[in-house]
Amino acid sequence: MPTSTQTTATGPAAGAPGPALGPDVHGTKPKAVIRPGDRIFSAATLIAGILILAILAGVALFLLAQSKETIDAQISDPSAITGGSGFFAYVWPLVIGTLVSSAIALVVATPFALGIALFTTHMAPRRLAPALGYVIDLLAAIPSVVYGLWGIALAGNLTGFYIWLAKWFGWIPIFAPGADGSVSNTGRTLLTASLVLSIMILPIITSLTREIFLQTPRLQEEAALALGATRWEMIRMSVLPFGKSGIASATMLGLGRALGETMAVAMILSPGMLTASLLVSGNQTIASEIAQNFPEAAGLRLSELISIGLVLFVITLLVNMAARAIVAKTSVKGS
């Protein structure tokens, strides 16, 4: 838009000195030249845009249609739903488990990811930086089932740490030991699952923020350094403000991955009732609940699992909308 107003503004001015050229310029202007390539390109992008919306709508419709049985049961006979007291009583502990595990993963992973990204872009020796980048990207390529296997092995080794946590920080509800004063003997708790999740989302956040930090205008950085700023001050004053919206959206993408991660959580977590403490076995996430119960599910149970899938879909949608809102807000301030 700005460019078109510019040309109309300069058009008459350019035409004024040379009247002979004027009519020609004005004559060709309204007829924009459209080549076949443009048509194909715009049609292709249009189709791609419509397709993604159609797929999304299709998924939502499928989930809704398959959830109908559960909705009917919720209205006519809530006790038929797993747990015996209606759909919402069944789903809310799962929602909490999902949100808590993702939040922990995000809180742990984000500082690390930012640190790694800043190190590779601004601190690391020139030769080391690309190699580090490859290694981080490699983490993203590891299948989640491998993370699951690794997490199971990790769990057993974390029990000592959990006993220590419960001993010294047991007064914080999330680190409280169980009723008999002990923590999980297997270490397969929500905290372990969240820690593995944090490693799984680390590469996404790292590589996105790295790309963004690389885009920081060189002149701003050099100006900051020339004014006597230290390396840290330069990063704080020029790199981080510039990357603010990028960091927000990278984090949200990581959160999306954590919310939907299925296999690793299903393998590591020892699910059970919702508990406040993260050191005893218990809690469950939506994705893992679906994965574990789908193979033997039929009828209403199958419909229930699909409806909690719908709940996860809605949560993910809300998270993405929130991310968009944050990006829109911060990018205005940042520029």
């Binding site: 797993t82 999980s184 003997n185 297997t186 397969r188 299903a266 393998m267 020892s270 699910p271 059970g272 009732m273 076995s281 218990g282 574990q292 119960n293 033997e296």
Partner: peptide
């Protein structure tokens, strides 16, 4: 039921 009663607690594995 095919699901172990959750209220009894204990460790679970897939």
């Amino acid at each position: 039921d095919g699901n172990f009663p959750k209220e009894y607690g204990g460790e679970a594995a897939q």
